Amino acid sequence: MPHHPHAPTRLLAALCLCLASLLTVAPRPAQAVEGGASHYIQGAYGDFLMGLIPASGFYVRNDTLYQSAHMDSTFKAGRVFAGIDDTSVINITKLSYLFDVPAMGGFLGLGVGVPFILNEHITGDVAADYSRRSRTTGLDTPHQLDFGGGGDRGGLSDIFLMPVIAGWNFGECHLAVSPIVFLPTGYYDKSKLTNLGMNYASFDGNVAFTWLSKKRFELSVNAGYMINAENATTKYLSGNQLHVDWTAAYHVNERLALGAVGYLVAQTTPDSGSGATMGSFYSSGTGIGPAATYAIPVGNKDVMLIAKWLHGLGATHSFLGDTVYASFAVKF
């Protein structure tokens, strides 16, 4: 058979087209909430005595967390990825002030949180630019094919406000209400994988409950519902999410407590907007792990040290992995 001078080029083009078709047509990528992530961080709300406000005053808390997770496939940065690996180190400082309000029989205050991503490392296994269907041929034609992507980035992420913090104590039971507003303050480029913010605002209504028995057993639950605004750049509206974080613990004494923490998150509305071209997806995930806290006296203050590890047990259309927290909190 005679050798055709354009045969290798045509063969390579055919292979690229077949691979791109597999990535963009069958099966659909697992995306849900744009890029498979949202302002909710797995296990971030789960803590000891999360529904208890002990006294009025100025509170400072700092969380440093290491997160390593994988997602099988997603549509992100204008490309379809067959796999995403994300390793991040994040530091979050939260400042809050609580007033004792006898008229309401509890506490009332406000707060702010400043997250800073020390480093985010993301790699994509295989990628293809999103394809558009030709009006003449009726076929999906990819614009470009890549065999990987990613990088590193660090900096300010999305600042969040706690405009109202309210708490009540009823003997062994304690209740706290704290809506949170996330602002799009972090770096964002729709063509990059390594974004520091979501590029949209979110409202997260939270109610926390703590039962602390006289025998020092604790059960705490935080339930929240996150409503996302549309990403103005990509015209992608991520679905709303219900998340529940819980803690079951035993307080060995006034300073030491040991227990388990866990989370459950589920998307309740589909993705929408003109940018959600791959369809509507629902995400969910759950995880569990150990936790410990110890109070160290520093001067006339008690500094609470908190450590916890969340191991993902399962996830659909979202990241699955491990998150380790090292935190401290102090009241002034």
Rank of each mutant, 00 (worst) to 15 (best):
G186K: 15
G224K: 04
V60N: 14
L196P: 02
L17I: 01
N119Y: 11
S21I: 07
V60W: 06
D189L: 03
Y263W: 10
G171D: 12
L305Y: 00
A257Y: 02
M304G: 10
V60D: 05
L22C: 12
D72I: 01
W168L: 12
G259I: 04
F203M: 15
T210K: 02
H317V: 02
A55D: 15
L17P: 00
Y187K: 13
D302A: 05
Y187R: 13
D140C: 06
G109R: 00
V298G: 02
M1T: 11
P163M: 06
N169G: 13
V261D: 09
A249T: 04
Y40A: 07
S213W: 03
M278C: 05
M50E: 14
S213L: 10
H251G: 08
R135P: 00
D158T: 08
S88C: 00
T24C: 03
R153L: 09
D125L: 12
P8Y: 04
H39S: 08
C16L: 15
D152A: 04
Q31I: 10
H311Q: 12
P115V: 03
F217R: 08
S327G: 03
L139F: 05
A260M: 14
L108W: 01
S68W: 00
Y325V: 12
G106N: 05
S157D: 02
A307V: 09
Y225Q: 06
A128Q: 06
V330D: 06
T136G: 00
A223T: 14
Y236T: 02
T194N: 04
G197C: 06
D302V: 04
G113T: 06
I306E: 13
G289C: 08
S56C: 06
V126D: 04
V252M: 14
M1V: 10
Y130K: 09
V252E: 13
K76A: 04
I41D: 13
W246P: 00
Y263T: 15
I53C: 03
T286Y: 07
Y325N: 11
L237I: 00
P27D: 03
I84K: 01
L19Y: 02
T268H: 05
F147R: 01
F203R: 12
A315C: 07
D125Q: 13
H4G: 04
A257K: 08
W246A: 15
T293D: 03
A26R: 09
Y59M: 11
G312P: 01
W168A: 11
L12A: 15
T87M: 01
P8S: 03
S157Q: 02
I117W: 03
I165V: 15
R79S: 13
G43P: 01
G138V: 07
A37S: 11
V244E: 10
D86K: 01
V101W: 05
A229C: 04
V261A: 13
Y282H: 15
P297H: 08
F170V: 14
P102T: 06
L242D: 04
A13G: 14
G36C: 01
G259V: 09
G113C: 07
G171W: 05
G35K: 07
R61M: 09
P163E: 08
Y282K: 13
N119L: 05
T9Q: 13
N195V: 02
A20C: 07
G186E: 15
D271S: 04
